[in-house]
Design a protein around this nucleic acid. Structure first.
Length: 511
RNA sequence: GCGGGCGUAGUUUAAUGGUAGAACUCCAGCCUUCCAAGCUGGUCGUGGGAGUUCGAUUCUCCCCGCCCGCACCA
């Protein structure tokens, strides 16, 4: 496995961006107006690919499972939902910049204290939040006293959050990085939720938000699904939809954008302590298997288990499935055990019971939840990264030429097959090819190409990841009704009878 | 948000204070019996805005976007 990984040649991000533009997968949004950072549009092929990924997920997670149902909730929801979920608070981290060291701190993780000697303030110290920050601050205070050669008794350091500093103190508090006062900015708000207003009057009471995650649409409908969906614990609710985050720095193409699409499941389970670890592990495995099923190689997928101390207070465990992107190994799929935090919060804020009556146990409880959360755009980028391949194929003169191929799994390829008449100026070839094309089109998205030499058409299809190219030649119409089917990855051809094409494709597309 | 670099057609690139040129791609036609062949023709460009100038793609400023690093990522 590690050998395979070492040999795998990752494409550069640039080569992916260029190909996506050239072949109509992904365009920068608002390009004719100079672009708009953090927003991307999907072109004809990208839209197909994205839809195929979503369909594959929905089929595997909803249709092929008895205990998961789907919903489709609104993007704009009651603003109280975001207070209950913690996003109004948590998405509003005040940040502090150090002008000198160019470092940035979260204001609630930066602490300061005046240094007092015999009741006189001789200066300030600051430290970053840590287990040893009290001792650290004490040392810095001692040093300050020594430097200033002040005599007297150093008073106890009382650390306070930087957010509690007064405007006058901002100028006196040193940066932890430089130790010099006056280089820190006041705390500034970074609101990561997009705001909007509902109704034509823009005032405080009309303020609303574009959802920063689809999950709350699920929690918010928990009672509705329980009351109407004939579900029993354990069961899941799935949703695919757009979400919006005002990222400070959108980067890495579609990896982190401001408008993106999520595929999320909230999987509701028994709150006892035995259930969640088992379900959690099952989900990690299920998610991995699904990634493999759409053609993502096992050696490009990793696990990042969050250490206990980094978990939020309500979380019992979080594991990220990671992927080796051109810009590094990054989070793809987050699987989190969120306990009953979300439903509990909504019960508290809405005043409506979120309890579930468990027939088997004859008791009521707020279910706990395991949340596998996956980004559609990130998955698409992972698929592109894994599929991109440059190899060498001899041209008609036998000279090797570079060939760019997207080796998509047939089930998600934008076109499942392409149909060509060998020559476009022979009516019989074109007519027969057209018939086959029409027939296959009823079942799949199929490409049609008559332009230029046959080799060019093959290469074009290679670049957009069409797994099979079917060519109608003179044998088809004059001899035995056979066609050639050329394989994208090997460039090898087989001849099969015209009537067998559909079954032949079907076997390989759904394999 | 900070620092650095960059911005000429879809792509790669040339040139200039005075008509922006090419190759490949793409489109059309001819030709072509299986891997980007050939011939003919065609479309498409100086990121946007101000300023200096008789004249700016070129010089200056602002904005936008992209890339790299830092920071951020509930």
């Amino acid at each position: 496995m590690s050998d395979e990984k070492a040999q795998r040649k990752l494409p550069t991000l640039e080569s992916l961006v260029t190909l996506c533009k050239r072949r109509g997968f992904i365009f920068q949004s608002s390009e004719i107006y100079g672009g708009y950072a953090g927003f991307f549009d999907y072109g004809p092929l990208g839209a197909e690919l994205k839809k195929n990924i979503k369909d594959a997920w929905w089929r595997a997670m909803v249709h092929e499972r008895d205990e998961i149902v789907g919903i489709d909730s609104t993007i704009i929801m009651h603003p109280e939902i975001w207070r209950a979920s913690g996003h109004v608070e948590g998405f509003n981290d005040p940040m502090v910049d150090c002008r000198e060291s160019k470092k940035r701190y979260r204001a609630d993780q930066l602490f300061f204290s005046p240094v007092k000697v015999d009741g006189n303030v001789i200066g300030y110290v600051s430290v970053e939040e840590s287990g040893t920050m009290q001792a650290e601050a004490g040392e810095k205070a001692n040093e300050l006293k020594r430097k200033q050669a002040v005599q007297g008794t150093l008073e106890a350091i009382e650390l306070k959050e930087y957010t509690e500093a007064s405007p006058e103190e901002y100028a006196l508090i040193p940066s932890p990085a430089t130790g010099k006062p006056g280089s820190l900015t006041p705390p500034r708000q970074f609101n990561l939720m997009f705001e909007t207003q509902v109704g034509p009057l823009a005032d405080a009471s009309s303020k609303s938000y574009l959802r920063p995650e689809t999950a709350q649409g699920i929690f918010q409908n928990f009672k509705n699904v329980v009351d109407t969906g004939r579900v029993k614990i354990p069961f899941g609710i799935a949703q695919i939809g757009k979400a919006f985050r005002n990222e400070i720095t959108p980067r890495n193409f579609i990896f982190r954008s401001r408008e993106f699409e999520q595929m999320e499941i909230e999987y509701f389970i028994d709150p006892d302590e035995e259930t969640w670890p088992r379900v959690y592990q099952e989900w990690i495995e299920t998610c991995k298997q699904w990634l493999y099923s759409i053609g993502i190689p096992e050696d490009m997928v990793g696990e990042d288990v969050h250490p206990q101390e980094k978990l939020s207070h309500y979380s019992k465990g979080t594991t990220d499935l990671t992927f080796t992107f051109p810009f590094g190994t990054q989070e793809l799929w987050g699987i989190a055990c969120r306990g009953n935090f979300d439903l509990g919060q909504h019960q508290k804020h809405s005043g409506k019971s979120m309890e579930f009556f468990d027939e088997a146990r004859k008791e009521k409880y707020i279910p706990h939840v395991v949340e596998p959360s996956l980004g559609v755009d990130r998955t698409l980028l992972a698929v592109l990264t894994a599929a991109y391949c440059e190899d060498e194929v001899p041209n008609d003169k036998g000279v090797p030429e570079t060939r760019t191929v997207l080796k998509f799994h047939p089930s998600i390829a934008p076109f499942k097959a392409a149909v060509f008449p060998l020559l476009k100026n022979k009516e019989e070839l074109v007519g027969t090819a057209r018939e086959l094309y029409r027939k296959l089109q009823r079942r799949w998205n199929v490409a049609w190409d008559v332009g230029g030499a046959i080799g060019r058409r093959y290469r074009r299809q290679d670049e957009i990841g069409t797994p099979f190219c079917i060519t109608i030649d003179f044998d088809t119409i004059e001899k035995d009704q056979t066609v050639t089917i050329r394989d994208r990855d090997t460039t090898e051809q087989v001849r099969i009878h015209l009537d067998e094409v559909e079954a032949w494709l079907s076997e390989r597309i759904y394999a």
